[in-house]
Design a protein around this nucleic acid. Structure first.
Lengths: 207, 207
DNA sequence: TAGATTGTTAATCGATTAACAATC
DNA sequence: TAGATTGTTAATCGATTAACAATC
């Protein structure tokens, strides 16, 4: 088991995939799995799964495999999603509202606690428990609640400014839905969701 | 310039990122760039960018760099997005509707031409030009129009069945928003968008 | 010309896989 | 026990980077 600082980011990136697959197996009523079965489902070699897990400890039993609930609990702990992270969504357009009201976050470790926009026509509207707030209030909101995670769903031309504001307020992890690369200081993590880049990656292979 | 069949998928995956950055530079009024500048913006080494591009030809000029509009046109051609791909969205919940009405597809090579759901309460509703259609009609719809691309935004438990239907109808590229890994035959491409996996990848690094 | 940047080669670096002893 | 599967090592494979001749 290597020291934590040496674990490659590409390995960290696969852990949520493993976690998701384990949750699915549990829902199907299964209690035990193997690196082979998991690999087949995910299109990953069994050796890679065992190697990835070995960075963090020993979670299986020779001859048997892995108790799914146990491995799931371990992965949640490693990824720090055995708690609930509050997060804010910036941008209350179609996409921002859809994200903010998505029901699948809570069971996987996240809760949307604020939805912000700069459009006066939108501020105050929406579900009673998640009314759109004025973007001007976001710094205080994030600071007071010690929020570390945000999702950006504003037009591309405003994304960098929103990002800067969030970082200044203390946000350390950003999921960016705007189709631009953000510049952030060291220690701030950014992930990107741009459906078009995924589509373009596939059209290359189409006839 | 290597033969096309040898080009690593990881290289293909970076081309849409380059294309997106070039488009942004053009919008900012810039006409020439270099591998160094592009790399700085994207957090990628200049050597990697030059190496990636060299798989497809020579697009730059020594001492000068790249004419952005030319490189952009070349990348569009390589990725086959110098045309407009029709696609269907399956699932007319909050997320599916938000995706279907997203305005950013057309300028990047895609057009949503159909939105489907199995809920009678939803069928027939929505914008006049993109009314929700009955999922029962999707096979004919896809076949008749020779549609090759689909986005899946249905609950996880229905995603695999929808996927099977789409593939049988002729779809060859699927962007899946449901949080499960899909099983598809050889020759069918799948990309995944699951915001939670991205978030979980970042929480690992948070204090 | 002098300075800059490409395209490409070779070296380095890191990730994946094969194989197997350990052991349940 | 016999069969199965883990965790780990070493080998392989592939991707990234450094360096530089070519040349605009």
């Amino acid at each position: 088991m290597a020291s934590i600082s040496e674990i490659p980011d590409i390995v960290i990136g696969r852990l949520p995939i493993y976690l998701r697959a384990l949750t699915q197996l549990i829902q199907q009523g299964q209690e035990i799995t193997s690196s082979h079965e998991l690999g087949q489902r995910l299109g990953i070699s069994s050796a890679q799964i065992r190697k990835d897990l070995s960075h963090f400890g020993e979670f299986g039993k020779q001859g048997t495999g892995y108790q799914i609930s146990h491995l799931q609990a371990q992965l949640k702990q490693i990824l720090q999603v055995n708690r609930e992270w509050p997060l804010v969504v910036v941008g209350a357009g179609d996409l921002g509202r859809a994200i903010a009201h998505y029901g699948g976050f809570v069971e996987r470790g996240f809760r949307v606690v604020g939805l912000f926009d700069n459009d006066p026509a939108k501020i105050g509207t929406g579900a009673p428990d998640l009314k759109v707030k004025d973007i001007a209030e976001i710094t205080d909101f994030v600071r007071e609640r010690n929020i570390k995670i945000a999702m950006i769903a504003v037009p591309a031309e405003h994304a960098q400014a929103v990002c800067d504001t969030l970082v200044k307020a203390g946000v350390r992890a950003i999921l960016n839905y705007a189709p631009i690369t953000l510049t952030v200081p060291e220690g701030v993590h950014v992930q990107y969701i741009d459906p078009v880049t995924h589509l373009q990656r596939m059209t290359y292979y189409l006839d």
